[in-house]
């Protein structure tokens, strides 16, 4: 009976507890300025990006070291993505896109460290990232193209009768963008972590433990892939939205 009690304690499912925001110092309420575990992991993410992109490249070597070549590959990948999709005019916004990409990649991967806090699993965080893109792109579109930006919603290739209907649909889909943009990232990260946690809870039971541990390994490997893919997708969608702002008439 004792082992069963143990097992029951182990089998307590709290897959969402890992996402709780707690103050680092003391146990008080969480104000907007309170340094919390979220703050700590934001800071670690920041330091990791700086370590790669600033300290990794301090040699400025023509023949790069390993860390420097990783930094350069990241730079080259994001730069090429932006240039391919948005053309030469998009290159101006490269620092912002690069900031997004580096932040998301590092936040995702750091969240895979056991006992860490996954900042990108919070919809509040990804919503801010997505709203920045949304508002930025909309403002940029109007500033660059004036009222011509609205041609984005007026599908010229469709028959005239259909155009108002399509315009409504286009406007709706345009406005839903930040929602899907943010929930995709947060949902993916949260789902993976919650699933790992559920498997971890099962691992406390002796007879399913091997299966559960295998499951954890599998999901963990999947998450390693999802982390980079979601960051990539977030960035590439940012580029696509940016292209809409720069060249609204497709």
């Amino acid at each position: 009976m004792a082992t069963e009690t143990e097992a029951e304690t182990g089998l307590a499912f709290h897959p969402m507890d890992q996402f709780m925001v707690k103050p680092i110092f003391g146990d008080g309420p969480v104000h907007w300025y309170t340094p919390t575990n979220a703050t700590m992991w934001f800071a670690i993410t920041l330091l990791a990006v700086i370590a790669l992109l600033v300290f990794g490249t301090r040699g400025r070597a023509v023949i790069p070291s390993r860390v420097q070549s990783i930094a350069e590959m990241t730079y080259g990948m994001v730069y090429k993505m932006l240039e391919d999709i948005c053309g030469k005019e998009g290159v101006k916004y490269f620092p912002y896109v690069m900031t997004l990409f580096c932040f998301i990649v590092f936040a995702n991967y750091l969240a895979l460290i056991p006992m860490s806090f996954s900042t990108t699993s919070h919809i509040a965080v990804t919503a801010v990232l997505a709203m920045f893109v949304f508002i930025g792109v909309t403002v940029l579109g109007f500033v660059k193209n004036g009222m011509h930006f609205l041609e984005l919603f007026w599908v010229k290739s469709a028959p005239l009768a259909l155009r108002p209907v399509l315009a409504v649909i286009e406007v709706i889909s345009y406005c839903v963008r930040p929602v899907s943009h943010s929930i995709r990232l947060a949902g993916n990260v949260m789902a993976g972590h919650a699933v790992i946690k559920v498997f971890a809870a099962f691992a406390a039971v002796l007879w399913i433990a091997p299966l559960a541990i295998l499951g954890i390994i599998g999901v963990y490997a999947l998450e390693m892939m999802v982390c980079i893919i979601q960051a990539y997708v977030f960035t590439i969608l940012t580029c696509v939205y940016l292209k809409d702002a720069l060249h609204p008439a497709h």
């Binding site: 929930i183 993916n188 893919i229 997708v233």
Partner: peptide, 13 residues
């Protein structure tokens, strides 16, 4: 990857 992400997002929803 974009296509996969779009398809997967709905499952995530």
């Amino acid at each position: 990857f974009i296509g996969m992400a779009f398809a997967e997002a709905l499952g995530i929803f």
